[in-house]
């Protein structure tokens, strides 16, 4: 079975990803795209309906991990070593958040990944992330 298929099934097999309503739409060659549809239970500010930063980090973390795993030089699993997220603006209430992550470098032990999250206004990122992931052997 090819690695992309395994990764896609892996996302579906993650209980927390299911609880967040995540959907993997693209994966392969160190790139992954995951969507998080708007949901009431993920709101951080009830006055504005803006999604909580924590839910955005969970989306970013999953997407970066999937990108690391899908890299041709990655043999199998991965775990997050560290992840930094910059929040540029609140996501617009009611809109799906789409994250694209890219594993731009991989060594024998570490995968380096960056990601960008956008809503409908794709020219103005909601958040950006950079992280280091383990390469499990």
């Amino acid at each position: 079975m090819d690695k992309s298929k395994i990764a896609a099934q892996f996302i579906q097999a993650i209980p927390h990803a299911r609880a967040l309503g995540l959907a993997l739409t693209e994966i392969g060659d160190g790139v992954s795209v995951i969507e998080m549809p708007y949901a009431e239970h993920l709101v951080g500010d009830p006055k504005t309906g803006v999604i909580h930063g924590g839910a955005v980090s969970a989306l970013m973390d999953t997407c970066c991990g999937a990108a690391a795993m899908s890299h041709p030089n990655s043999p199998s699993g991965t775990a997050t070593i560290d992840l930094r997220i910059d929040y540029m603006r609140p996501a617009t209430a009611g809109q799906t958040i789409v994250t694209r992550a890219e594993c731009y470098n991989i060594t024998r032990s570490v995968a380096f990944v960056r990601a960008t999250a956008v809503d409908d206004d794709t020219n103005n990122p909601v958040a950006m992330a950079t992280g280091a992931f383990t390469v499990e052997r």
Binding site: A13, I14, P15, H16, A17, R18, H52, T62, T80
Partner: peptide, 23 residues
Amino acid sequence: DKLIGNPMIPAIHGGAISGFLEV
């Protein structure tokens, strides 16, 4: 159970952990 990220180990999802820390 909904906090689980890796059902094989099992371990809490990194995203759930960062959400918890941020809260």
